[in-house]
Design a protein around this nucleic acid. Sequence first.
RNA 1: GCCUCGGUAGCUCAGUCGGUAGAGCAAGGGACUGAAAAUCCCUGUGUCGGUGGUUCGAUUCCACUCUGAGGCA
Length: 321
Amino acid sequence: MQKIEKRVSPKGPFVVIVGPTAVGKTKVSIDVAKEMDSEIVSADSMQIYEHLDIGSAKPDVIEQDGVKHHMLDCIPLDYSYSVAQFQSDARNSINSIINKGRLPIVVGGTGLYVHALTHDIDFTRVVGDEDYRKQLEAISEEKGKEFLHNMLIEKSLDRAKNIHPNNVKRVIRALEILNDDSVKNNDTYDFEKPLHGIDFTIIGLNMDRQQLYDRINLRVDIMIEDGLIDEVESILASGFSKDLVSMQGIGYKEIIEYLEGIVTLGQAIYNIKKASRRLAKKQITWFKRDKRIKWWDLSDQDYCGATNEVIEYINDWRMSI
RNA sequence: GCCUCGGUAGCUCAGUCGGUAGAGCAAGGGACUGAAAAUCCCUGUGUCGGUGGUUCGAUUCCACUCUGAGGCA
């Protein structure tokens, strides 16, 4: 675990486009960016990795259509990236775009990453403490998950009531934060703390659930046709371990199971589709509760109309700030 | 034409010796502070093929009927 040297604050206004996987964020955002002479900052925890091209649905150079993309295809596969680092790196990207006099458009489906960019959360304060974590893991093993959770209740009932005792990973991290001296006497460690002084607007894209699922299923079939299996084989042949965090992404872990003979190709494809549908559902759940989002419905494939409306909306918003 | 076995949740099927039903998968809802495509929690969604009959009461028993599979002609 490494410490992020300095906290980065965004310098100026930016746009955010969110939505579930396969809804059409990439297409809409590139069209909008071209129209507005913008650059895109990706907020996607998988597309950020190198070599995860087909399976992460990363836009290639042709699809990018001349629009400059940041935070895409830039982290080595064997590096364990994190939201803290993303917050810092993405804000640097945003600021570099603003320095060019352009409007940054953040695009992505990773809710926590977007949350970190659009709230005043300071991840630099509490660094991971491996020894303390091991100690807590040992307590969980020996005395049980409930015992560990009770420790959290004693320190902060507020934090404890939103974390289920079975979610040991979360309980440990919460204890780690509360154990840090800088947090102990500081009640401003607020997940929802607004980002003051910076104007931004969040646009959400969604569509009829069944239509979205049809698109997901079709896209998985296309990924297989485009050579997802070769992509996974070549990653493994390059010496990367299947245990890497990056290789737990949807489309990768399932193909690895197929390559290892655990499941048939048909089952692997079925599993990828299922996991993708569940991802979309979770993303919708995450974004639904964010009342700042202005939603557009992309059902029935009306991309042109929606894109024009979004452009108009952004123009109006810019005039108002 | 005759015989046999089926028809119950989106799918595959249990089950009720008569008191309006439950598993798996699929699905839905939710939590979220340094792995977030991660981690974790909650939920059965139903004209029991149709119409009659027997019964206090039928998804269950009976008759007819529609429908699927197999067998015999």
